[in-house]
Design a protein around this nucleic acid. Structure first.
Lengths: 207, 207
DNA sequence: TTCGTCATGTAATGGGTTACATGATTAC
DNA sequence: GTAATCATGTAACCCATTACATGACGAA
C-alpha cells in the first residue's frame, strides 16, 4: 500500500511508545531519546515524516487535542496527539514477535530490548541468544585478525582494539546473565504455575 | 576543485593507512575493518568511490603494479596500488592536527585514536579530554532524565539504561587512565629531554 | 571445471541529519 | 516585549549500504 519503506527501528520505537501511552510528536522524540539514551538519537526531520507515513497506513490516528482551556479560547491548532489503531497494535505485536537478525544487530537490538516488557518470553530468549552469538562471532573474527597482525602495531592501535574487545566481552557477560535469568524464570513458571508471587524479579510480560 | 564532499572519517582512515604503507583497495578495506574492528566497517561501495575522489584531488596516486611474475606473462590489469602524494601527506597532517568535535564525537573518535601514533602530543590530549567531557555531558543528561522518570519504567528498560550508563562510565575511566598516561609522559619529556630510553611505554610519535 | 576468494567498480536505494520556515506558549 | 522552549513540518543533502556486473587466479 501507500508510500515508501519505513525505518524499521523507528517504526517499532514509535509504535511501542505510543502503545504505552498516546503522545504528540515533540514529546515522543524526547521519550525516544531518553529511552535509548546512550544508543541512538532521532531528530524531528526523521520523526515527523515517519509519523505521517504511519498515519497514512492507518497504524496510528491523530487527535487534535484541545486541553479544554479555562478561558475557552479556541486554540488554533493544538498539539496533535497520536495513538495506535487496532491495526497498529496488531502490527506492533507482529514486529515484537520477530526474532530475526533485525532484532539483534547493532541498530535494532536496543529498541527491541527496550520493549521486552511487551515481548513473549521465547522471543526474548531467542533475541538475547541471537545477539550473543553475533557478538561472539565478532570476537572470534577480531581475535584471529589480532594474532595474525600482531607484528608492528603501535601502542595506540593495540589500546583501541583491546578496549573494543573488552567492551564486547563485557556485553557478552551481560547477555549471559540476562539469559540465565530468563531461563530461571521460565523454569519457575513451569514448576509453579499457580503461584502469583514469584520471588526474585518481575520480568514477566503482562498479557 | 572538483567533486563532492568526502566522508571525513573514511578520508582520514584511508590517508592514514596509506601513509603507513601503500596498498590496493581490496586490502585497504580489510586493514580498515580490522583496525576499527568493533566500531565500524566500510564496504567497497564506499571505499572505491572515495579512492577515486582522493585520486582526482591529487592526494593519492595509483600505480599499476605488475609483481614481475616469473613466467613474464603480461598481466592484463594488475592490482592498483595507491600511495600518498606530497599533497596527500600534507593534508593528512592537517587532518591529524584538528582537535575539534569531529575528532571526539562517536563517528570520528575511533579513527582519530587509531592514528594517535602519528598525532602531536598536545592534539592527542585535547581530543581525549574533548571526548571525556562529551561523554560526561551525556552521562549527566541521561542521569537527570533517569531520576525525573523514575516512575513506571519496567525492569527491562531500566536494565538497558543501566547497561548503557555503565558502558559510558567505563569508557570515561578508560579515558582517565589514558589522559593520566599522557600527562605523565609529557612530564617525563620535560624533565629528561636528553634521555632516549623512557621507562613505561613507547607512546610517542616518531618524527 | 567449478568453486572460493581476490579484485575493481557502478546504480539504486536507504536511512538519517541539517538547516530552514513557521508559529504558539511561557517566563522574565 | 522579548527570549526560550514548545511544537510541527519540509527540502536539500550526506554518508553509506546493497545488489549488481565483471573478471582474474588458485585449489579441489
Amino acid at each position: 500500500m501507500g508510500g515508501g519503506k519505513r525505518s524499521g527501528v523507528l517504526e517499532l520505537a514509535v509504535l511501542g511508545l505510543l502503545h504505552e501511552s498516546p503522545m504528540h510528536g515533540y514529546e515522543l522524540r524526547k521519550q525516544l531519546n531518553t529511552l535509548l539514551g546512550m544508543f541512538r538519537a532521532f531528530s524531528y526531520g526523521t520523526l515527523y515524516p515517519c509519523l505521517k507515513q504511519l498515519l497514512a497506513q492507518g497504524l496510528i490516528t491523530e487527535e487534535d487535542q484541545e486541553e479544554a482551556p479555562p478561558g475557552t479560547l479556541q486554540s488554533k491548532r493544538a498539539k496533535i496527539v497520536y495513538k495506535l489503531t487496532a491495526e497498529g497494535k496488531e502490527h506492533l505485536q507482529r514486529l515484537l514477535s520477530e526474532a530475526g537478525p533485525a532484532a539483534w544487530e547493532d541498530e535494532g537490538f536496543g529498541v527491541h530490548f527496550a520493549f521486552f516488557g511487551q515481548t513473549r518470553a521465547d522471543v526474548r530468549l531467542r533475541i538475547l541468544e541471537g545477539r550473543r552469538s553475533r557478538l561472539e562471532e565478532r570476537l572470534e573474527h577480531v581475535r584471529t585478525a589480532f594474532t595474525r597482525t600482531r607484528e608492528r602495531v603501535d601502542s595506540y592501535t593495540l589500546e583501541l582494539q583491546n578496549h573494543g574487545l573488552e567492551s564486547v566481552e563485557r556485553e557478552v557477560r551481560w547477555l549471559n546473565e540476562l539469559i540465565g535469568r530468563e531461563h530461571a524464570q521460565a523454569a519457575d513458571q513451569r514448576s509453579e504455575p499457580q503461584q502469583d508471587a514469584v520471588k526474585g524479579n518481575d520480568l514477566d510480560a503482562p498479557s
